[in-house]
Design a protein around this nucleic acid. Sequence first.
DNA 1: GCGACAG
DNA 2: ATCTTGTCGC
Length: 185
Amino acid sequence: MTNPFSAIYQDTINLQKEIAKKVVTNDNILLKKQINYVCGVDVSYKKDIAYCSAVIIKKRSLKSIQYVNTIYPVTQPYIPGLFMLREAAPIIDTLKLLKSPYDALLIDGHGQLHPRRCGLACYLGVVLDKPTIGIAKSLLCGVQRKDQFIEIEGEILGFRITKESKQGSLCEHWAQIEFTISNST
DNA sequence: GCGACAG
DNA sequence: ATCTTGTCGC
């Protein structure tokens, strides 16, 4: 590519395809291993500054164990499908600051529910080798079935949780964690 | 070609 | 994501 910008994007697309192959979808990891501590992370923006926060909580008590806040200059634009280009690096750097251990990661973005089966959550999960759940507030691709599962090309890759959702199915392992679903219709 | 499009 | 007025639903 002669255009340096499209080259970066193409490199990221290729990386996503490789990372997608390494995603472990077998939930035995989550089913067999006790998940006692969970880490949640998110990034907000003001002008061209990114504010990243990560917090570890004890799942059973929801008590906060440790949190870290970081600030970075924004280096990449937001491009649907290439979200990891914008948030992966700041998140990884922020998570490195945590001293307390955690068993699972909660990410504000899609996981396998992605055009190349590699959303931000998949990328982080593979790179950090940590059980990860992608939690997005709106759909990037795929279709929602009446039973709330979301599928792409006939493959079930996600599940929609609303405030009306009852525990069970995919939610049961996380039923003790109460989410606040915003911007959800 | 046109529209849709995580945060 | 952020900004930001009016509007719909409980």
